[in-house]
Write a protein that binds this DNA or RNA. Structure first.
Lengths: 206, 206
DNA sequence: CATCAATTGTTATTTTTTTCACATTGTCAG
DNA sequence: CTGACAATGTGAAAAAAATAACAATTGATG
């Protein structure tokens, strides 16, 4: 489908779906744009525009069919059979993130973990097999991995990223506070806890 | 100082400072806007405008004085003697986040942790004392805590948030995937791993 | 069956953020 | 001392995102 959606819209679509997922079995259930907006602190107009952009049509009297909505969002933002994701860096943060994602219901499948600590290689974390980073190219290809979650120590963030890019990774969720330089075509999302805290700190001053 | 900076600018200011912090002892060192921009994948104009907004003046020949720059960013986005932060929810994710922040160099001080598990109360995690959530009001006031990092299980996210708000917290960094409703004046920042992954998944399709 | 209230779909407007463009200025070379 | 280069500072333009406004539609109601 059309890949020209605004990033903000994609973010919100993901949230709509997650919020609505719990009602997915209620056949015929509907929701109004203002209700959905209220639940997520958005405006109804924003919700309607987002849904319009992915071609969802609501009922003028009953609102949007929840099941159809979940389905259409899926058609838009999911790959066909889920995305394969690798966790890179099996420290405390990495393990915690892994646990978090496995508890959440999502189409993102963590299918491999990478580290350089020999004692971790060939073990399983949860049920995720652990490989040496040097084998990334092979594993990434074999398992059709396209996304990496980067939870390595800052010192090795840049070098690790270079290896990941060589191995064919297309998107990176960067938990290190290190700035990464990626070529065009690679989608990088920074997850910078410190910056977020400082931002909060600034905006609560008055 | 002026609190009307665009959120994006505040985010970038935090990043400028973190990047430049390693040069803070080089007396008289300067950096050009285009150099700083290159390091963070921004445009030089954007950098200059951000700095202009907080009243920094560069040298037309040598660029911006790094030390002054770090100082001015601090004047703008820091509270006077750092911010007091509480970690709420001492599970794996909470502990990992705590470890991460303590390794990073930042003015955000984690001064208390909260949980409801009796076995954790009155212990220390790292050197952070752990309290029962019921004592939040008291502790928050005593320690001048203004920001909470929320790493509790999703089932209790809403109830916990209500308690935090009652105790006088002003800002929340929300690691749960649960949507939180906060009154005006409270600054909430969602840290939604799943949404971020799905966003990456969408944008690498083509 | 006509009315009415409520909601959608979408165009227009406003606001926010980024980018462009260029006059201005500090420093260095000669 | 002077000219020229290479920055900065900033108004203006453009792009992106959010909000407002309102006609069109639906279905419930009397």
């Amino acid at each position: 489908m059309n890949t020209k959606l605004p990033p903000r819209t994609v973010e919100r679509l993901s949230k709509y779906r997650r919020l609505l997922d719990k009602y997915k079995d209620l056949e015929g259930a509907h929701i109004y744009s203002h209700k959905l907006a209220g639940l997520l602190n958005l405006t109804p107009e924003q919700v309607r525009r987002d849904l319009m952009l992915i071609g969802i049509t609501g009922n003028h009297r009953r609102g949007y069919n929840i099941k159809e909505l979940i389905g259409m969002i899926g058609n838009t933002i999911d790959r066909h059979e889920g995305q394969q994701v690798a966790l890179v860096g099996i420290g405390n943060l990495g393990r915690a993130v892994l646990g978090f994602i496995r508890k959440a219901e999502t189409r993102m499948n963590i299918v491999a973990a990478f580290d350089i600590d020999r004692s971790k290689i060939n073990t399983h974390i949860g049920n995720v097999p652990c490989f040496h980073l040097h084998d990334a190219r092979q594993v990434v290809r074999d398992k059709s991995i396209r996304i990496a979650i980067l939870t390595v120590p800052p010192e090795v963030a840049v070098a690790t990223t270079a290896m990941l890019l060589q191995s064919g990774i297309r998107g990176i969720l960067n938990f290190t506070s290190v700035h990464l330089d990626v070529p065009p075509g690679i989608y990088l999302k920074d997850y910078d806890i410190i910056t977020s805290l400082e931002e909060i700190g600034f905006f609560i001053q008055e």
